[in-house]
Amino acid sequence: MAAATRLFADRGYDRTSVQEIVEAAGVTKGALYHYFGSKDDLLHEIYARLLRRQQERLDAVAAAGGSVERRVREAAGDVVVTTIENLDDAMIFFRSMHQLSPEKQRQVRAERRRYHESFRALIEEGQKSGVFHDGTPADLVVDYHFGSVHHLSSWYRPEGPLTPRQVADHLADLLMRALRP
């Protein structure tokens, strides 16, 4: 996975061969195909592992109790931090998702939809309770925040002036200010 991620990030999914992946990983093609049925499966798993981690963390935040404002802020920041911590995975996905098989694309969309619906449920909870204003539809709020997250790989640099946590705090603060009545 690490070798494929590095190669896909540097060269692109379509310009990386299975042979280059196995050589970089120091394994045989047989070993690769033991774990992954195809290069398509490998690309899908790169993104799926990040999304699984983010979904688990979001589920834990949502279930933790406490104020909805705290949970939304924590969830909003966490998706930024975990995306930055896995920036190559995110970049590969957004550059290459269209190259997945139609079935894998449907799977990814369903996984992403589940994540977005969980996040949206938190926004709606805050809107229904009056903690957040309800003038903006929750779906639009979610799309706004995740639009920012999806573009992190185009501008965030680890050697830059902001740490992942600082970026997360700034973006979460922007979201929270937009939600307040």
Rank of each mutant, 00 (worst) to 15 (best):
A63H: 01
V81E: 07
L43V: 03
A48N: 00
I46Y: 02
D78R: 05
S67N: 04
H34K: 13
R114D: 12
Q99D: 09
R52E: 13
E74G: 14
R109W: 10
I92T: 01
E45F: 06
G77Y: 02
Y35Q: 14
L32H: 10
E56R: 13
R73V: 14
L51I: 10
D88Y: 02
R112H: 12
Y47L: 03
L43Y: 02
E56H: 11
I92E: 00
Q55V: 11
V80P: 15
T82R: 06
L122V: 13
N86G: 07
R53Y: 07
V79R: 12
K104Y: 11
R73Q: 15
V68P: 03
Q107N: 08
S96Y: 07
A76F: 09
A48C: 00
S38C: 12
T83N: 03
H98N: 10
E124V: 15
K39W: 03
T82Y: 00
R95M: 08
Q55L: 13
A60Q: 08
K39P: 04
E74I: 09
F36I: 08
R70M: 04
D89L: 06
S96M: 09
S96A: 15
R53H: 11
A90P: 08
E69A: 12
D41A: 10
L87M: 06
R49M: 04
L87P: 03
I46M: 05
R52W: 06
H116E: 12
T82H: 05
G37D: 13
D88I: 04
V81A: 01
K104I: 05
G37Q: 08
L58V: 10
R49I: 04
L43W: 01
V81H: 01
R120D: 03
R106F: 00
N86P: 05
H44K: 05
F94L: 08
F36G: 08
A110H: 07
S96D: 14
F119P: 08
R49E: 08
D78Y: 04
A64W: 01
L42C: 00
Q55W: 09
P102R: 00
T83C: 03
E125F: 08
S96F: 10
D40F: 02
R106A: 10
A64R: 06
